[in-house]
Every structure is written in structure tokens, then in C-alpha cells.
Amino acid sequence: MKKRKSVVANVLVILMSILWLFPVYIVFVNSFKNRAELYENMLAWPKSFSFEYYEKAMKKMKFFHAFGNSLFVTIISILIIVVLASMTAWMLVRANNLLSKIIFSTFVATMLIPFQTLMMPLMQEMGWIRDNLHIQMLDNRLGLVYMYIGFGASMAVFLYHGFVKSIPVSLEEAATIDGCTKFGVFWKIVFPMLKPTTMTVIILDVIWIWNDYLLPSLVLSSKANRTIPLSTFSFFGQFTIQWNMAMAGLTLTIIPVVIFYLCAQKYIIKGVAAGAVK
């Protein structure tokens, strides 16, 4: 009986996996087809696997330029989020007073606010800063980084906060007795122990920032600043859509983040579990 249940469970897992990966299959096989093949049968394999449409897609997207923009925005945003969120969470845990609890609750509460309710006020505020303070927040990669830091801080602080609770205070006290400064205690003792949560934050934020379309579409208007998700929009015209090149462009877009995820996935469950139980 147990063996039969195990077989049924495995079959269900395989079927769900196939269903989940079906859109990926559609994107991949149609990226090699010409328009006639694509409209004839979307599910069939292409007659030949030629990288012609990938070359055309890369040229039209200005792939390497867009790739550099995405890389710049993603790396700078994540570095700052990791540094500031880890330090914030550590101070909130160690302070352990009413004010620190209110601040932490505020961070958690902001995770529940949908971005769609904020995007218009956000753009108005960034426009006001540009017009009155003469700081270019719109159509600027650093302005986009600034916004990602704000939107990514809440989840990062939440994850770090749970893990910091598991670190014994005695380690920090021993380091202080040995002459270590507050800055040294954090970077030499606390931060290295936060590695599982740091990897979790990095992985989740890489997937989010790299694939995000909505916020960059609101902030970046010039072609020179476009990220990879924005550059794929060049295949969608007003009257016609180049589906085969769009599929090739989408495949090129997801390959870097899939490779990154496969290399770092072992840290996800460890980091989330460590931060959730405490």
C-alpha cells in the first residue's frame, strides 16, 4: 500500500513538473522557428535548430549593452541591500526595546503593500525631487537602484532579523572584551555567521531585480538605460509582433538567472528555515 502511494505521489510530481515547465518548452522551441512554422504548430519541434533568430534578437535588443545595465543595477542594489539590511536587523535585535520592535513591525508591514498602489505617488515624488532638488531620479540607473533598495529592504531585514536571534550574545561580548570595536564585532563575528541568510537574500533579489519589468518601465525612458526585460519589448510593435525573435530574446533573458539559481539554490531552504524558526 505504501509503495502504491509512493508511485502515485511520484507520478503526480512528474505531471506537475511537466505542467510547470510547459511555458518554458513553448518559449524554447519557438525561438528556433520562422514565423510560418510558429503559426502552423506552436507545440511541434522546429525543422532545424538554427541560431539565426538569436543573433537577430541580440542585435535588435542591443543585448550586451542591456545586459550590462541589468548587471549594474542588480549588483549595486543587492550589495547595498545586504549591507544595510544586515546591520539594521542586528541593531534591532540587540536593542530589543519598544522602539526597535515598532521599527521592525513597520518593516514587516510594508511587505504587505502592493507596488501597484505606490507606483503613481512614487513617480510623482521622484519627479518633484528632479524638478526641485535637481537630482536626476528618473531615467537614471542609480535612481532605479535607489528605489530597489527601498523596496527590497523590508524582506531582507525580516530574514536577517530571525537569523540574528540565533547568534549568541556571548560571542559578541567576548570579542568586545578582547578589544574589538562595534564595527569589528559586526563584520568579523556577526556578518560571517549570516552567510545562509545572505545567500537567500541575494538569490531572491537577483531573481526579482533581474526579471523585473514594471519598475524599470516607469523609471527608464531612454534606450541607453534599458535593462534586459525592457529591451525585449522592442519585438512587440503596435501592429505586429515578432514572436520568434521575442522568444529568443526571452530565452536569452532567463538563461543568466537560471544559471545563477542552479549554482546557489542549496542556500535557499537553509537560509529561509534558519530565519523563520527564530
Rank of each mutant, 00 (worst) to 15 (best):
137 M>H: 13
152 G>E: 05
105 S>M: 10
229 P>S: 04
1 M>A: 13
44 A>H: 09
115 F>H: 09
112 L>K: 03
202 I>E: 05
3 K>M: 14
227 T>I: 04
194 L>W: 00
29 V>D: 01
134 H>V: 04
117 T>I: 03
217 S>D: 09
242 Q>F: 08
210 W>R: 10
181 T>E: 04
124 Q>N: 07
273 A>N: 04
220 L>N: 08
160 Y>W: 08
179 G>N: 11
230 L>H: 05
94 R>D: 04
1 M>R: 09
153 A>E: 14
4 R>W: 14
139 D>R: 06
249 G>R: 03
236 F>A: 11
75 I>F: 05
202 I>K: 04
247 M>Q: 01
59 K>T: 13
212 D>E: 10
95 A>G: 05
208 W>G: 13
4 R>F: 14
133 L>S: 14
191 F>W: 09
127 G>D: 14
3 K>N: 15
231 S>I: 11
252 L>E: 10
110 T>A: 05
76 I>H: 01
69 N>A: 07
234 S>C: 05
68 G>N: 08
43 L>S: 09
25 Y>M: 05
221 S>T: 13
269 I>E: 10
84 L>S: 03
217 S>C: 09
84 L>G: 00
182 K>D: 09
64 F>I: 11
160 Y>A: 02
266 K>V: 02
73 V>C: 08
117 T>E: 01
139 D>H: 07
184 G>Q: 12
231 S>K: 06
101 K>L: 11
59 K>I: 12
52 E>A: 02
204 L>H: 00
72 F>C: 04
191 F>M: 07
276 A>R: 11
99 L>M: 15
262 L>R: 10
78 I>T: 02
179 G>T: 11
52 E>W: 04
204 L>V: 00
171 L>S: 03
250 L>Y: 05
277 V>L: 07
94 R>M: 07
144 L>Y: 11
152 G>P: 01
197 T>I: 06
108 V>L: 14
112 L>V: 13
34 N>F: 08
48 S>R: 15
42 M>G: 11
117 T>D: 00
122 L>C: 12
192 P>M: 02
270 K>G: 15
111 M>H: 07
180 C>P: 05
216 P>T: 07
189 I>R: 01
64 F>G: 05
149 I>N: 12
18 I>K: 08
116 Q>F: 09
253 T>M: 14
52 E>P: 00
225 N>C: 06
126 M>H: 09
221 S>R: 13
105 S>E: 03
